[in-house]
Simulated assay, not measured.
Amino acid sequence: MIIEIIILIIVLILVIYIIYQYNGLIRLRNRVKNAWSQIDVQLKRRADLIPNLVETVKGYAKHEKTVFENVTKARSSLMSAKTVKENAEANNMLTDSLKSLFAVAENYPELKASENFRQLQAQLSETEDKIAYSRQFYNDTVLMFNNKVQMFPSNILASLFHFTEAEYFEIAESDRAVPEVKF
Score class of each variant (00 low, 15 high):
residue 8 L to D: 00
residue 45 R to D: 04
residue 119 Q to D: 13
residue 67 V to Q: 01
residue 155 N to G: 06
residue 98 L to C: 03
residue 42 Q to E: 15
residue 3 I to A: 14
residue 168 Y to N: 09
residue 22 Y to H: 10
residue 72 T to H: 00
residue 26 I to V: 15
residue 129 D to I: 08
residue 59 G to M: 07
residue 57 V to T: 03
residue 47 A to R: 05
residue 142 V to W: 02
residue 169 F to E: 07
residue 21 Q to D: 09
residue 47 A to H: 08
residue 146 N to R: 05
residue 131 I to D: 04
residue 125 S to Y: 00
residue 95 T to G: 12
residue 87 N to D: 11
residue 103 A to F: 03
residue 79 M to W: 00
residue 98 L to P: 02
residue 1 M to A: 13
residue 29 R to T: 02
residue 34 N to P: 02
residue 177 A to C: 00
residue 44 K to F: 06
residue 26 I to H: 03
residue 180 E to T: 15
residue 177 A to H: 12
residue 169 F to C: 09
residue 118 R to V: 10
residue 162 H to L: 10
residue 70 N to P: 02
residue 173 E to F: 07
residue 97 S to R: 04
residue 6 I to R: 06
residue 153 P to I: 11
residue 63 H to L: 10
residue 148 K to R: 15
residue 70 N to Q: 13
residue 101 L to H: 01
residue 134 S to N: 14
residue 177 A to N: 13
residue 46 R to P: 05
residue 63 H to W: 09
residue 156 I to T: 08
residue 125 S to F: 02
residue 8 L to C: 10
residue 117 F to H: 01
residue 94 L to I: 08
residue 11 V to D: 03
residue 77 S to K: 15
residue 148 K to V: 09
residue 138 Y to A: 05
residue 2 I to T: 10
residue 29 R to C: 01
residue 183 F to G: 10
residue 47 A to F: 05
residue 74 A to Q: 04
residue 41 V to H: 08
residue 150 Q to H: 12
residue 15 V to L: 15
residue 150 Q to Y: 00
residue 49 L to G: 03
residue 47 A to W: 04
residue 35 A to V: 08
residue 5 I to H: 00
residue 7 I to W: 09
residue 117 F to V: 06
residue 159 S to R: 15
residue 71 V to C: 02
residue 43 L to R: 09
residue 167 E to N: 14
residue 183 F to P: 08
residue 81 A to Q: 10
residue 116 N to R: 05
residue 132 A to Y: 04
residue 183 F to Y: 09
residue 175 D to R: 13
residue 133 Y to R: 12
residue 66 T to A: 14
residue 148 K to G: 05
residue 162 H to K: 14
residue 18 I to T: 11
residue 76 S to Y: 04
residue 112 K to I: 08
residue 81 A to L: 11
residue 126 E to C: 02
residue 66 T to L: 10
residue 102 F to G: 03
residue 31 R to T: 05
residue 107 N to R: 11
residue 50 I to P: 01
residue 54 V to D: 01
residue 83 T to E: 11
residue 157 L to C: 06
residue 91 N to Y: 14
residue 57 V to Q: 01
residue 177 A to T: 13
residue 35 A to D: 04
residue 16 I to L: 15
residue 151 M to N: 14
residue 125 S to D: 10
residue 107 N to P: 06
residue 63 H to D: 12
